[in-house]
Design a protein around this nucleic acid. Structure first.
Lengths: 212, 212
DNA sequence: CCTTTGTGATCTACGCTGTATAGATCTACA
DNA sequence: TGTAGATCTATACAGCGTAGATCACAAAGG
């Protein structure tokens, strides 16, 4: 075994855990399974990751780190904001098992701060009054996280093919579904929908921006 | 024990499980604990709720059922939409432990369809073209769920009081935080922020609406 | 009245989980 | 060579979800 610092070893463990979750899902992410993948006994992980909860927090940070390049990219404010948003969604497709943790585990690590700071910067240069910046940052990040999680977990597209049948079965109890049966029959283009929602939010931001 | 139908018994079990989760959190929601609360052996639950996963789905449905009154309320389209949104957020504060499941477990029960249908109806009467209705429904519901989950899980307001210290420690790496130090020092008004975001989304909807 | 049938709850057990605690093993320096 | 420190291991415990077998008891048939 290569002799590394404890920080390097910690990252080694976390990346093994992330790979495991990517391959076999979050339920398969047990301390024992991670330890086996690292080639070590379960208890050997504890000095490096604390406990399982802390390990999950570590995974969240690993995900955030993948977003940093997009956050540091140059360009006009809307280009930067779009880049971060699309990177956030792409991240979800890369790590669907772990991604939902971003919504449920608050991260206050330096990387998380840097990411929020990039969004703050984009909003500020867009001309948004400082008092509105944190709120609109939360609006945008909630959209990106919520949309991506919705895609991933199947909230938007229930796998059940009887979906329409159900709606029809509800019959008069779901009149608007019937009125929309035409558009509901077509499978949505999730890429386009995400971009459209993002455009809508950029308009919201512009509405709040003051001409400099 | 009163002799009830299996459906009634199932609801009895689910409401006990919900109460347990409300009181002691999701981690304490074990089959054994639910059984003890119902006054029965763990294995006795299985004919009624299937297994733990199905029990959680049942809890999701229980939450959705609480939203139905708001979905059925009358009024102008924007009044109805606001009522549903605020009811969705209030639900999160009532059941903070279970609420996040709404984002991670797709629900295709009749109640879920009815709720979506109510949102479709509001958007249609607002004059939104049918092709845009499902997308904007997802935009609104994602906002409500994502915002409420963010509030609940502490994503918006990390409990760590060293938050500002951290931002300052990041120093020049978080320049926008420094620029916003004034507004960041004030504690946000979450009620007002939710309403403001909802207003923004209503403007988005109106932008897409065609005059009838 | 006794027996049979069926149904719901129970009992026991298995493999899994996170992790406390104690012990073993190896490295590096005096 | 002896010892200190760091690192990993071994064992154990309480709790989890749930499969399988068993039990208790109410209603129905002879």
């Amino acid at each position: 075994m290569a002799e590394l610092g404890v920080e390097a070893r910690r990252r080694e463990i976390l990346t093994a855990a992330l790979a495991l979750a990517d391959e076999r899902g979050l339920d398969a992410l047990s301390m024992r399974a991670v330890a086996a993948r690292v080639g070590v006994t379960p208890m050997a992980l504890y000095p490096y990751v604390g406990n399982k909860d802390a390990l999950l927090d570590g995974l969240v940070d690993l995900l955030l780190a993948e977003l940093l390049p997009a956050a540091a990219a140059p360009g006009a404010w809307d280009v930067r904001l779009r880049a971060i948003a699309h990177a956030g969604r792409a991240l979800a497709h890369r790590h669907p098992a772990v991604y939902p943790l971003l919504l449920s585990r608050p991260a206050i690590t330096p990387d998380a701060v840097r990411l929020v700071d990039a969004l703050y910067g984009a909003l500020l240069t867009a001309g948004v009054p400082p008092a509105q910046v944190p709120r609109l940052e939360r609006l945008v990040s909630t959209y990106v996280l919520g949309y991506a999680v919705g895609e991933i977990t199947g909230r938007f597209a229930p796998a059940d093919p009887r979906r329409h049948a159900r709606a029809e079965a509800a019959g008069s109890a779901a009149p608007s579904h019937q009125e929309l049966s035409g558009v509901l029959a077509q499978p949505p283009d999730w890429d386009a929908e995400f971009a459209a929602g993002l455009d809508d939010l950029l308009h919201v931001i512009l509405n709040h921006a003051q001409p400099s």
